[in-house]
Write a protein that binds this DNA or RNA. Structure first.
Lengths: 361, 361
DNA sequence: CTATTTTCCGGGTACGTTACCGAAAGATAG
DNA sequence: CTATCTTTCGGTAACGTACCCGGAAAATAG
């Protein structure tokens, strides 16, 4: 049951012995601190490479008096519009629970998705505190770019979650591949509707950045039907309240009476389903949308929504924090992109969707 | 950036001080070792409760000279039959990589799924070594029950993976909910075939235990169609080579020419798809099967299989090890069952299925 | 060449636990 | 009552790393 651990891994002590220096000196070169002559420094570095020295994380965290502070910058959870962000937040908390033993602390900051100014205010707030890493949902592109410029100056690593801003040298991106998820929706529609049934794409959002986000999904869908002559129409709805959605939707359906499938490019699909149910046409039109929100799941369960495409939101939060942790504590390189699986949720399987991370089972 | 950690958590030192004893004595009661009088023991225990003492895992692992040995008992990977188990093994390795820093070592043992005697031999082998925890795929029920009886006597915790033996006081079960996955298959079939198209259920396996395993899926499928008058036929195939499968399958299809959907209750679906392709009827019959094996994915990609139902095999391995780790190292209670999500894999999304855990993307 | 600064480095303590060794009690035997 | 064993406990060296402090050597100034 109990045995001595294999003494394979060498420590600073062995390095110091071989280099004929003190442990403190080895420590200095490991942390790239000044006070070491170039000669001894290179000698020690050579030995470190030779022994393939791997610092003992436990001892390191134990001896270190620091605590790592991670900040999350996410949209406020608004139960009225969509509670999508509750799940990433849950994942973040789970991650924090796991690693707080290791001296990591997570401090959440929230901005208002309907108020781009709030984003700037919150990010300014973040940088006032001492922070070692940032998890960011870059909902507003311009403001985000400005923010991460500051981060770069301060040498604070940041990871993007849920939507990406490419070429911004983030530590990594964690979230969906938007194009492929639209492509996936295309496949579901092809399987479940007649060959030439019309498809209606609905982008429901009043923020322009977010809109760009939705566009990629639409592109994916169109790419799937590229070679077929499937009729596809698109409708942008800029007001996200139920009444406006219904009005616009009604107009669109009047104009195209042959619509047999609706692809809502975000989590507002519940509002659409309510309209279809009211009109008694929810069984005639295939309805596909996004995200595992409470309301969406409820309406999926009642049969008013056919498919929900999800991207493991709580896992995104969990991995976002863990990526920072891996980078800052474990000092291991992290992959640049973590595309989440494209999960297809139905009435039948929703109860089992990541059931161990929350209370649905 | 750097600050003193909150000194909130009390350690053994503080406990010793308050109890007017030495640290060693506190350590003795913490580990329930002999050599402490009942009086001082209860006094120390009271203080521990009062302070809500949480041991520092890092210091504990650092100071401990022990290494934890976990054994995995899984089916051998046979590329000929099915390489299903490569993914759980990958997950296990990933977990080991993550926690070997903490003094955990994983030692794999493999048995032959086609030879129940090998199971007994391997498990005997396992108990010869010193082992602190076991991850077990209980493919052979009787033998497994005997094995875990020994484990219980030796007080070694064990977790079941991929298939469960209920009421066996395992630390936990990690794997699919078989019934619900069959139910899910029903839903896919309803969506993708005409209302009264016949469904053929294929159980392809020559081991009886395994068969019982498959039966639950069939039950799920039938449960889905319970109220409808959907015609369903079932065929058991006891020989798993391609020729036997084709012979039996051909017989079944001759007998029921109106079959429009085939539900293969395990990963042998590729063999079926090969037959359908050969006969040129792979486009006429909806084919649903299980598991993300290389061959299955390849044939899914070529359009010969329509859906694969998967249960995150690598995640199962990962979580299995982590559950033991959580229990043995972190000493936190683990949930009794981890039902994995029921993932629906298609030509369109397979490339994104847990792509960060292996090399498919 | 001496005085002062700068550069470089070693000693040593701390982090919270584990676990070994041996000492002081107490119990038992003779 | 002494000798021996047993129970109960305290002191303390590790574990591998971080980091402070002070001292020697080297560089610069005077």
């Amino acid at each position: 049951m109990k045995k001595k651990a294999a003494e394979q891994p060498f420590g600073v002590k062995e390095i110091a012995r071989r280099a004929n220096v003190a442990i403190a000196t080895v420590d200095r070169v490991i942390h790239n601190r000044p006070g070491v002559s170039p000669k001894t420094k290179s000698k020690i570095e050579a030995i470190i490479r030779e022994l393939n020295y791997q610092p003992n994380i436990l001892a390191r965290r134990l001896a270190s008096r620091h605590i790592l502070r991670l900040a999350t910058v996410l949209p406020k959870v608004s139960s009225q519009e969509t509670d999508f962000w509750t799940l990433p937040v849950a994942g973040i908390q789970k991650a924090e629970e796991e690693i707080k033993q290791f001296g990591v602390k997570v401090e959440p900051f929230y901005f208002d998705l309907n108020d781009r100014k709030s984003f700037g205010k919150v990010t300014k707030q973040v940088l006032k505190n001492p922070v070692d890493g940032i998890l960011l949902a870059p909902s507003f592109i311009e403001e985000s770019v400005a923010f991460i410029r500051s981060c770069k100056e301060l040498n604070i690593p940041y990871v993007f979650i849920n939507s990406d801003i490419p070429q911004q040298e983030s530590l990594c991106y964690i979230g969906p591949d938007l194009f492929r998820s639209g492509y996936q929706a295309g496949q579901l529609i092809r399987y479940c509707t007649p060959r030439n049934a019309r498809v209606l794409v609905l982008n429901i959002s009043h923020e322009i950045e977010d809109h760009h986000h939705l566009l990629r999904k639409e592109e994916g869908l169109r790419a799937y039907f590229q070679d077929t002559k499937r009729p596809i129409v698109k409708k942008d709805i800029r007001q996200t309240d139920q009444a406006s959605i219904e009005k616009e939707l009604s107009k669109a359906l009047q104009q195209h009476a042959d619509v047999r499938a609706i692809f809502v490019t975000n989590s507002r699909v519940a509002a659409v389903s309510r309209y279809l149910e009211k009109k008694g046409i929810d069984k005639d039109i295939l309805l596909i949308g996004y995200d595992f929100t409470k309301e969406n799941v409820s309406r999926l369960d009642q049969g008013h929504i056919d498919f929900l495409i999800c991207q493991q939101p709580q896992e995104q939060g969990y991995r976002g924090i863990m990526a920072l942790y891996q980078h800052l504590v474990m000092k291991v390189p992290v992959e640049k992109t973590h595309f989440m699986p494209i999960d297809i949720i139905t009435k039948e399987n929703h109860a089992f969707y990541n059931c161990d991370d929350h209370d649905y089972c």
